[in-house]
Amino acid sequence: MKEVLRSYKHATKEEIEHFCIPIIVSGERKGRLRPITLETIDNESEIQMLTEWRSASSNWFTTQFPFSQAGTKRWLQRQVIEAEDRILFFVEDEEYTPIGQIGLIHYDEQQKECEFDNLLRGRKGRYGNIIIHALIAIGAWSIRELHIQRGYLNVLGDNARAIRIYLELGAQEVKRTPLVKRIEGEQLRWTAGGLTSLVKGSS
């Protein structure tokens, strides 16, 4: 099944429409999930957009550092495109305008589980709750295409809004892990040892 992730991440511009996941709300298409691909790395406007989004939301990441377009390119290449167990999508509205991102990581083909991560809204879309429905869409896709039986999320404990949304979608909080702040040069890391909530759900 890891070949499925690879095929999505290496789709060309001519193929990309076939790899997009529709976001359906009450039977109507309100947007789509477009995979971030190898070609995205050479798209300067999209790299700039991702950099700005991640910088604006950096407080919600366990690893924080100064963001740059060069750093975003390296991160996409090494941590997303080349990773066998990870994929990232643009969340697009009805007009195919990118308004956020969402992905999955730590895909375990044997255990049939994965972590949903990098759920981030960069700008407001035409449909107010599209990010919530994007999470539903990627969840359904992971069950259908990757045969996921269990999905989970790690959320910083003070991100009350995100936790509320996940609980409303049927997830259950199963664990809280204390975190310790570590500063290494310009990088700040929260490592196990603050407060984080782990929310987990089953298909």
Rank of each mutant, 00 (worst) to 15 (best):
I105W: 07
G103C: 08
N43L: 07
L119F: 13
I136Y: 14
Q79G: 12
T63H: 11
R189M: 08
E145N: 09
I24E: 07
G185K: 01
K73E: 09
I138F: 05
I183R: 15
Q77P: 00
L104M: 14
I131Y: 04
F61T: 07
I81S: 01
D117N: 13
C114R: 05
L33T: 01
Q48F: 07
T63P: 02
P22R: 06
T196P: 01
L146F: 06
C20M: 12
E186N: 10
D93I: 06
I131F: 09
A140V: 12
G185T: 01
V199G: 02
E113G: 11
I23C: 06
W75N: 03
K13T: 00
H10E: 11
P22Q: 08
A83S: 10
A140Q: 11
E95H: 10
L38S: 08
I138Q: 01
A162N: 04
T72Y: 04
N159M: 03
R144G: 07
W190C: 04
S55Y: 08
A137P: 03
S202E: 13
G100F: 06
V4R: 14
V199L: 14
S58G: 04
D93Q: 06
S55G: 03
I165G: 01
K9R: 02
G201P: 00
Q187V: 13
E92R: 09
E84D: 14
E3H: 13
G194C: 11
A140R: 12
A160R: 06
L188G: 11
A56E: 07
S202F: 10
E15S: 07
V199R: 00
L38D: 04
G31E: 01
I148Y: 02
I163K: 04
I21Q: 05
E14C: 01
L104T: 04
L146V: 10
C114T: 14
G103N: 09
S26W: 10
G103S: 11
I36N: 04
R189K: 11
D93V: 06
